[in-house]
């Protein structure tokens, strides 16, 4: 049974950046892009497991800090020509607070 979990006010998330949510020993990266879109996915690059939360955020993608693979927020897929996929999570902002569904 998955529930919406309250994380923190949106203001605690840097624009064009991310925060890590630790749940059950697993890290989830929650991104906020320049347009205040919020996205969540496993904090693990499909290439070599790099922490995606530490990458540079531009548009709807994050660039993995280890080897530069670009991952799209919308579907968790690597941008061509790279291949790979990261699990994403539903996320929403209500009255300025970020909620995550795990």
């Amino acid at each position: 049974m998955s529930n919406w979990i309250k994380i923190a006010p949106l203001s605690e998330f840097p624009q064009q950046g991310a925060r890590v949510v630790r749940h059950d020993g697993k890290d989830i990266a929650v991104f906020r892009n320049a347009g205040d879109g919020v996205f969540a996915m496993n904090d693990k690059c499909p290439h070599k497991g790099g922490p995606l939360s530490q990458g540079i955020v531009s548009g709807n993608t994050v660039t993995c800090p280890l080897h530069g693979m670009n991952i799209c927020f919308d579907d968790g897929k690597a941008l061509a020509p790279d291949e790979g996929c990261v699990g994403t999570y539903p996320v929403k902002v209500e009255e300025g607070v970020v909620f995550l569904q795990i």
């Binding site: 840097p14 925060r19 749940h23």
Partner: peptide, 9 residues
Amino acid sequence: KHEFEVFSV
């Protein structure tokens, strides 16, 4: 400060 803090849920 936010860089070094993790949200644990």
